[in-house]
């Protein structure tokens, strides 16, 4: 079929002026100033970035994961760079609920951006305790429930990979939390749609997709794993295609469930891919390490790109993916039908 067009590209749209693009958007019950947030574990508790950048320009941020008691983290080496990514096994080091609410939360509350507090426990009781204490703290807009960190040994695996367990855990936390709960899922789950559906039915407001993917790197000279715990979480652009696929799968199967997409976003175009795949907002993680102003730069890029593509509002982009055409001309002929 030599005459068939190879693509049916987007109709030419009149470009917009960037300042007319409206980045403010809804995410479930939330109103965000921008769909771009800083991701958990990559932004600490925010203060370190204040020296470099205006935090009020962010749509929001997700804190380092908080547990009921402080944790000291894993032995070193804890991180290593890999192709287009990095492995980490920090071990969920954090100051604990009490110090977080006392020392860190007031600073975040005063920024006027969406404050997502990432939290985790090591068993049902500690998850629920965390959800109760943090979900009732003033200034917390969302509890982002981490059931997906690869870097703790006790119990963590089934919370993030067995839908029935995730369902029960989510329900118990939703019942005690004064703030909506977004559950952060792991790509290591076998059935990502089943996991998202399980936590949705348990009352989760939305899901964050995806946490890091378990990986490994080896130093052949010392013959040792490059991080002390052998396996760590892979992040960065290396995981972006996997993250996009999972966002798209969940968005397609569970329309209406708010999805916060993340995984290797380094540019406005990356962020727009996540929105088009079905994410209502996007978190930026690893990029913050090299560039403390990454979220602001990516926000400006997203605004410019949306203007260029004639997308006036975030909602115009979300889940706006167009399928490849189904006309016969584009389909592979059955065996024997095609000859040269």
């Amino acid at each position: 079929m030599s005459g068939a067009p190879r693509t049916s590209g987007p109709a030419l749209v009149p470009g917009l002026l960037p300042h007319t693009v409206e980045l403010g958007c809804e995410f479930g019950p939330l109103l965000l100033k921008s769909p771009l947030l800083a991701a958990s574990g990559c932004f600490a508790y925010g203060q370190q970035f204040a020296a470099f950048t205006d935090l009020r320009a962010l749509g929001g941020l997700s804190t380092k994961g908080i547990s009921p008691l402080p944790r000291h983290g894993n032995p070193l080496p804890r991180i290593c760079e890999t192709a287009a990514g990095m492995l980490n096994s920090i071990g969920l080091e954090n100051v604990g609920v009490e110090a977080f609410v006392r020392d860190k939360l007031p600073f975040l509350r005063d920024l006027g951006i969406s404050v997502w507090v990432n939290f985790f426990g090591t068993d049902f009781a500690t998850y629920i305790e965390c959800a109760r204490l943090l979900g009732g703290a003033p200034g917390v807009d969302v509890l982002e429930m981490n059931i997906s960190c690869p870097n703790i040994k006790q119990g963590g695996i089934e919370f993030g990979t067995v839908p029935e367990v995730a369902h029960r855990l989510t329900r118990a936390c939703v019942e005690v939390s004064g703030a909506p709960i977004v559950v952060k899922l792991t790509p290591n789950a076998g059935d990502i749609v089943g996991m998202a559906d399980a936590v949705r039915q348990a009352g989760a407001m939305g899901v964050s997709l995806i946490n890091t993917i378990t990986g490994m790197a080896i130093d052949v000279r010392s013959r040792r794993p490059r991080i002390a715990t052998t396996y760590g979480g892979l992040s960065g652009p290396a995981i972006k295609p996997i993250a996009l696929r999972m966002v798209h799968q969940v968005a397609t199967a569970l329309p209406g469930l708010p999805i916060c997409g993340m995984g290797g976003v380094l540019s406005g175009e990356d962020a727009l891919e996540f929105l088009m795949a079905g994410a209502g907002c996007v978190q930026i993680g690893t990029a913050n390490f090299a560039e403390p102003g990454a979220v602001q730069r990516i926000t400006a890029e997203l605004r410019a790109l949306m203007a260029e593509l004639g997308l006036r509002r975030v909602a115009d982009a979300v889940a706006s993916l167009r399928p490849w055409p189904l006309e016969a001309a584009y389909q592979t002929p059955a065996a024997g039908e095609f000859s040269t």
Binding site: F43, Q48, A51, F52, I79, E81, N88, N288, F289, P292
Partner: peptide
């Protein structure tokens, strides 16, 4: 990864 107290690496 960062140099300013965030990655904890």
């Amino acid at each position: 990864a960062c140099g300013f107290g965030v990655c904890l690496g």
